[in-house]
């Protein structure tokens, strides 16, 4: 699905990380941990083509990301659902339209009518479908972002601190949804500081936990 081989990334001349190799194979479930500022978000952005590596090679579904034009990146992004900590919605559209946005931009509006209602029900937002994003709570926004990330039935789901702004109960609900998706064959990678979330996931699904620290990516310790 997505492969990083000896990848490095520099910010303004300073090396953020290097020699990072990672393979997100079909149906795998990964956690990405590490201290703040280690480069977790940057690493995830490399995984969905929002940034270009300064060294090494990133392959998105077999294609070298460095050689892909912006159209090709956009098309590959339709196979990757992204959930951000700050969610990023269009505040003038209601929840339902925001969730359907990936279908809209890919010209697949007709599918929206059939699947949208089910998806909104799956994330438990039936009562909020007509509300605007600023009217939602943190947990509702995260669930709406997750629904938007999966509406295209992507092969890979990338979640950057999806539980950062929600309570433990909501974290559990979001994790359950992500585990369900993984059981449906989706590849999942979650960046998080929340060790309890990782422990909860390990009890439900086979996961691989990676730690980005001191500019290197490594397998996380046995404490998990």
């Amino acid at each position: 699905m997505i492969e990083l081989e000896n990848v490095a990334y520099n910010y303004g001349g300073a090396e953020l990380f290097s020699q990072v190799s990672l393979t997100l194979s079909a149906g795998s479930f990964h956690f990405l941990t590490g201290p703040s500022g280690a480069g977790k978000t940057t690493l995830l952005k490399l995984c969905y083509g929002a940034l270009q590596a300064t060294a090494g090679q990133v392959r998105l579904f077999g294609d070298d990301a460095a050689r892909m034009d912006r159209d090709a990146v956009a098309l590959s992004r339709r196979r990757i659902g992204v959930v951000h900590q700050d969610c990023q919605f269009l505040d003038h559209l209601n929840v339902s339209d925001n969730i359907a946005l990936p279908l809209t931009v890919s010209g697949r509006d007709a599918e929206a009518a059939g699947n949208l209602g089910d998806l909104i029900g799956w994330v438990g937002l039936c009562g909020q479908a007509d509300q605007l994003p600023p009217e939602l709570s943190g947990g509702e926004r995260q669930r709406a972002a997750l629904a938007r990330a999966v509406i295209m039935s992507p092969d890979v789901i990338i979640a950057d601190e999806p539980t950062g702004n929600v309570d433990w109960e909501m974290s559990q609900r979001l994790l359950t949804l992500l585990v369900e998706l993984n059981r449906m064959g989706k590849t999942v990678i979650i960046a998080t500081h929340d060790m309890n979330l990782i422990r909860a996931a390990k009890s439900q699904v086979t996961t691989r936990v990676l730690r980005l620290q001191d500019r290197r990516l490594m397998q996380a310790g046995a404490e998990l």
Binding site: R70, Q88, F89, V105
Partner: peptide
């Protein structure tokens, strides 16, 4: 912000 979100969900530049 609109452009960022549309890119995030796979919108092509021409769209």
């Amino acid at each position: 912000q609109v452009i960022r979100v549309m890119r995030l969900v796979g919108a092509r530049d021409i769209y």
